[in-house]
Design a binder for these strands. Structure first.
Length: 805
RNA sequence: GCCGGAGUGGCGGAAUUGGUAGACGCGCACGACUCAAACUCGUGUAUCGAAAGGUGUGGGGGUUCGAGUCCCCCCUCCGGCACCA
């Protein structure tokens, strides 16, 4: 009987669901294994074949670990707040929760059709009130710890749309919708003090089993640099200007100072003569969009303020300029310019004819401009002759002793802009009263979204919530207004910062999670998802987790022990799958035609999980062919287990194939190398295809091995073989190294490292015997004629290499 | 520019981490089955050469008995950051 994937896959999916085979016990004497997927945003367009790639991999690991005797937590849920549903609501008036519900239904159907072993009793949805409650609760923990504050920060304001836009809604300085100009305008926002955790987040990376590239990305993003703050006095306004530098050793070479155009002191510093030029420059700089700024990078511009600063090491007066190559938001918004040792300063100095003093000895063969290499200090008074590091230490001590500066650390990382002027997000649980902020009490949570008529932002750029007085105004029993609710909502990142904790205890109404359950399950053992989340999601959720750890709510500092990024599946044309290219492959069609097992198997067979690789319909057909072939090998036309499957003893050769497969498949699953596992199945199948009879126990072992990859067919075969016990929990087989050994082995014989012949020897032969045998080989003899053997190298089970002269 | 990753047959990719390069699959060719085609099965398939043999893992050097694998220089592609002082 030909393999009927539709019937069989449906049958087992219903069986798994009805019998709750994958329901996970909260506590167990078994060791735990927590394998997590990055949960999806349920978009309207559904999945394409690339989306479930990571889910297939984690499902294989989950099923494998169950065979290995682990209590496996493998949940799925929905990151359901987000812009598309809100935009759809603005367009059609459909409430986002309605859209979300529909989309989730479709996503769940698509995910289920692939036969994943999720514990659906733990399904979560970030937009459920029961979930929002705890997202808000965590926000309040951060607030109470002093990590949430309000600040005026620039946002993307589109005057035409009267709306604040997210970065992804701004393309080339214009709104994505309509192409209207977008400018940066300061607005009151909620910020989270992630910078306070910069060191903690940096240090935590060291011990994580994460891709090297992701760790590097996060390190660069945090961007820690060490140096010193140096005080320059500003005589004209009788203030001190502190600047950050990583090269305090070059202080004697600081020949001018540059401030960001937006620096608040500029207005005070500028003299009358320069006033109009400075104002004009500030004007132009403020109008530059981000794109212009990068384009104009090539040529540096700036204006002299007509004021001076005093270099603390030598008392010299140096001119102060403004230029947009200095950023207000890093350090103090001002720099000491050392053109001799910094190329940017060199370029600027050359253009405006400012003095250049080298303070590090350049090598004889140096022909560049600014010199940033190693060398001893020159032109630097008491630092002269010192290597860079020694000079740094000495000048810092000197500055500290005189009260003119100190050692300092700076980060590129900025605080997290946590508020959005949107409807479809978690309301921030804060009440404003008399200029103060009052957090809601836990008992008042969740603070739910009210129904609104319109989803557009209010004309002032505030969220649509601000247009509902009933909701905004908090009244006492007499109806008097005692406060106003915060109308900003949280960003989409909020829900995904802690969802892995809620899976542990999804129905808990007393607490976000039970502490003992958390202690049992955390950390996540394996986390698989796309590389696009390398920084933001993974940094934000680590930040929250570090805070929760410091507050004693969680038992581990780091949430994700091992991280893996699955690669992209490209279209058949080798480019990214997209509707506009028309190269999207739909999993519904694929599963319908070839079945879930074939799709799972093919996606794993395509290549290494982390690499990008193109889809190939013929490749998929190859895997489908393999499944049908294996089926027809084991099952008769009448749908019964084949008569060739007997209790006859297996040949040594077959046992060797089997145990080799067990060894390699086990090792390769542990190392997430699923493509080679599929090869192993094919090699074994090719072998048994040529046999008269096959031992039944061997086939039963084989069924366990393929179960993680092709669970539907494995279950069906398991049932046909007459097994009553549940396949999911059958013990994973061990391999016997002795059975992998053959009686004879093939060795290459090399002359001077070049392969010249091949010999078959008995495994019992000694090294000397093998060497002698190799030397007597007919093809080797002619290479030895008239030569002298100076060395004989035997590599066990591999080769003999004869070095001749 | 800086940081990270990758370059192996016609294609996707293997190679126990220094030991017979090209497993497995796709594609292709030939053969069997068929009136025929599809399916299925079998055989072959890095490359040059009639053969003996030579050459081959982006290019060039090096270490080694032996290099796809280690070291140095260079090229190309992908991802990220982008005046961070």
């Amino acid at each position: 009987m030909a393999y009927n994937h539709k019937k069989i896959e449906k049958k087992w999916q219903v069986y798994w669901q009805d019998n709750k085979i994958f329901r996970t016990d909260d506590q167990s004497s078994k060791p735990k294994y927590y394998v997590l997927d990055m949960f999806p945003y349920p978009s309207g367009s559904g999945l394409h074949v690339g989306h479930p790639l990571g889910y297939i991999a984690t499902d294989i690991v989950a099923r494998y670990k169950r065979h290995k005797g682990f209590n496996v937590l493998h949940p799925m849920g929905w990151d359901a707040f987000g812009l598309p549903a809100e935009q759809y609501a603005i367009k059609t008036g459909t409430h986002p929760s309605v859209t979300t519900k529909t989309n989730i239904k479709n996503f769940r159907r698509q995910i289920n059709m692939l036969g994943f072993s999720y514990d659906w009793d733990r399904e979560i949805n970030t937009t459920d009130a029961t979930y929002v409650k705890w997202t808000q609760w965590i926000f309040l923990q951060l607030y109470k710890k002093g990590l949430a504050y309000e600040d005026e920060v620039p946002v993307n304001w589109c005057p035409e749309l009267k709306a604040v836009l997210a970065n992804e809604e701004v393309v080339d300085g214009k709104s994505e919708i309509g192409g209207h100009p977008v400018i940066r305008v300061p607005m009151r926002q909620w910020m989270l003090k992630i910078t306070k955790y910069a060191d903690s987040l940096l240090d935590g990376l060291d011990d994580l089993d994460w891709p090297h590239s992701v760790k590097e990305l996060q390190r660069n993003w945090i961007g820690r640099s060490t140096g010193a703050n140096v005080k320059f006095s500003l005589p004209s306004i009788q203030k001190n200007m502190s600047v950050f530098t990583t090269r305090p050793d070059t202080l004697f070479g600081a020949t001018y100072m540059v401030m960001a155009p937006e620096h608040p002191w500029v207005a005070n510093l500028v003299n009358n003569e320069q006033k109009s030029a400075v104002q004009e420059y500030i004007e132009i700089a403020s109008k530059k969009s981000d794109l212009d700024r990068t384009e104009l990078n090539k040529e540096k511009t700036g204006v002299f303020l007509g004021a001076h600063a005093v270099n603390p090491v030598n008392g010299k007066e140096i001119p102060i300029w403004i230029s947009d190559y200095v950023i207000m938001s890093y350090g103090t918004g001002a720099i000491m310019a050392v053109p001799g040792q910094d190329q940017r300063d060199w370029d600027f100095a050359k253009k405006y004819d400012l003095p250049i003093i080298r303070t590090v000895q350049i090598p004889d063969d140096f022909d560049g401009e600014a010199y940033i290499g190693e060398g001893v200090a020159i032109n630097s008074d008491f630092l002269n002759g010192l290597e860079i590091n020694d000079a740094k230490n000495k000048i810092i001590s000197w500055l500290e002793a005189k009260g003119l500066g100190e050692k300092a650390i700076q980060y590129k990382l900025r605080d997290w802009l946590f508020s959005r002027q949107r409807y479809w997000g978690e309301p921030i649980p804060i009440i404003h009263k008399d200029g103060k902020t009052i957090p809601l009490d836990k008992s008042e949570l969740p603070l739910e979204l009210p129904n609104v008529e319109k989803y557009e932002p209010s004309g002032t750029g505030e969220s649509p919530l601000s247009t509902i007085p009933d909701w905004v105004e908090v009244k006492d029993d007499n109806g008097a207004i005692i406060g106003l609710r915060e109308t900003n909502t949280m960003p989409q990142w909020a829900g995904s910062c802690w969802y892995f904790l809620r899976y542990i205890d999804p129905k808990n109404i007393e607490n976000a999670w039970d502490k003992s359950k958390e202690a049992y399950w955390m950390p996540v053992d394996l986390y698989v998802g796309g590389a696009e989340h390398a920084v933001l999601h993974l940094l934000y959720s680590r930040f929250w987790h570090h805070v929760l750890y410091d507050l004693g709510f969680v038992s581990t500092k780091e949430p994700f022990k091992k991280l893996f990024n699955q690669g992209m599946i490209l279209g058949e044309d080798g480019s990214k799958m997209s509707k506009s290219r028309g190269n999207v492959v739909n999993p519904d069609d694929t599963v319908d035609t070839y079945g879930a097992d074939a799709m799972r198997l093919y996606e794993m067979f395509m290549g290494p999980l982390d690499k990008a690789k193109p889809w190939s319909i013929t490749g998929l057909q190859g895997c489908s062919r393999f499944i049908k072939k294996l089926w027809s090998l084991l099952v008769t036309n009448e749908g019964e287990f084949s008569k060739h499957i007997t209790h006859d003893d297996s040949s040594k050769e077959t046992l060797r194939y089997l145990h080799n497969m067990i060894k390699r498949v086990s090792y390769n699953i542990e190392n997430l190398q699923f493509n080679t596992c599929v090869s192993e199945f094919m090699i074994f199948t090719n072998h048994i295809q040529g046999l008269e009879t096959i031992n039944k126990d061997i086939i039963k072992t084989f069924i366990v091995l393929i179960n993680p990859f092709m669970p539907h067919m494995a279950q069906e075969l398991w049932q046909l073989s007459g097994n009553e016990s549940e396949l999911t929990f059958i013990k994973w087989p061990n391999f016997d190294e002795n059975l992998i050994q053959s009686d004879t082995m093939k060795l290459a014989v090399q002359i001077n490292g070049k392969r010249r012949s091949e010999i078959v020897v008995d495994v019992t032969m000694t090294e000397d015997e093998i060497n002698e045998f190799a030397k007597s080989d007919e093809r080797i003899l002619k290479y030895l004629e008239g030569k002298q053997i100076i060395k004989e190298i035997y590599v066990e089970g591999r080769l003999v290499n004869l070095v001749v002269k």
